[in-house]
Design a protein around this nucleic acid. Structure first.
Lengths: 191, 191
DNA sequence: GATGTAGAGTATCGAGTCGATACTATCCGT
DNA sequence: ACGGATAGTATCGACTCGATACTCTACATC
């Protein structure tokens, strides 16, 4: 098994090792990787996407699995559930203060720190390359992109002044300031 | 939570999603991600590194966890264990034919395929960048590098002809052809 | 030779993941 | 009002995973 530098299988190997390492960091602090991943998503998604179903799709897991993970987080007092009135059985999950505090000690910060030590142009290149790979895999598996509103084909830019807010053309709803940079489960990449 | 392109936290997010996706691919085919990871390691490590202890270090897991994973693989007939004579309780784990066959359908091939679709220079850049990040994380956590023999400080290049094989300066042992491109648990990056 | 003692591996336990399946509740179109 | 689609839950079994306590071997020191 030869692995010359730059070969796809060598890169996949690096990737695997990195993923394994980050995953093993996830243990400790009372939380496990799956719970941290759920917490991270909930901290960065918009108010239309904080449902068990959306989380299940994001994590590429089943609804049942996610349901249990949420129950574990609820037991620990890190999230709360509330009915989303007028939307069937839909539920909105929100982080508690304790939940946000738990994310402050997120081991993924160490990953960000490593990225920060790269050259600026390497960071941009890495971003583009990872996005391309992820996009290809998502498309190949028929999964949603889960990008931020601002990059969505339904995003309608307002004037940024009161009376002309940004707007979601799919849900026909005005967006609050900051919403445009949150993850949305209905995201479709702009054409 | 703003995530401008190229920002470290955005890149960490991409990374997380990619890792999660590959992990969820791991299910199916009767094997789960942990078992696949063990199988991959065993397929690409040298004959001094196929022990439960080395695997535990590679996976950044405990010996107990790895012991169970190996038992599961043994039950499925994908690996066999054999005592390593003269080495205490040390054990050598080897893949069976069925084990190698199981790796043929490895979902990580889809990852390699995506990498293969990138520009050649992007592949080389990605390799270097990931290696830098991984190296930083490993060093920061006091973990071993698990590189291939050829890049080790103890590697002594032979003439490539019979009578002058490559050699490991740490174990004081001659290397068989091909050994130099296998992962070694004693690897130390060349200075 | 006896006696640590360090290293390698295993047994067992409890919390939790995870997919699969079957179930309930709510809405929407006809 | 009925049927279907959608959203979430309950339960089960296989497995991961860390923690802890244990066994077995080798090796150094007395």
């Amino acid at each position: 098994m030869h692995l010359p530098p730059g070969s796809p299988s060598r890169i996949a190997g690096l990737f695997e090792r990195l993923a394994r390492l980050m995953r093993s960091c996830g243990h400790g602090s009372g939380l496990n990787p799956a719970q941290l991943e759920a917490l991270r998503y909930l901290a960065s998604c918009n108010r239309f996407s904080n449902s068990p179903g959306a989380l299940a799709e994001y994590l590429a897991a089943t609804k049942g699995t996610v349901s249990q993970t949420i129950q574990a987080l609820e037991r620990k007092g890190l999230v709360t559930k509330a009915a989303r009135q007028g939307r069937g059985r839909s539920i909105a999950i929100t982080l508690t203060e304790a939940g946000r505090a738990a994310l402050a000690g997120d081991p993924w910060h160490r990953m960000s720190d490593q990225v920060r030590m790269l050259d600026e142009q390497d960071q941009v290149a890495l971003d583009a390359t990872l996005a391309a790979i992820l996009g290809g895999l998502l498309a190949g598996n028929g999964l949603k992109s889960f990008g931020v509103c601002r990059t969505c084909r339904y995003f309608e830019r307002g004037g940024g002044v009161p009376g002309h807010p940004d707007r979601c053309g799919l849900l026909k709803l005005d967006l609050a300031p900051g919403d445009a940079d949150l993850i949305c489960s209905e995201h479709r990449a702009a054409a």
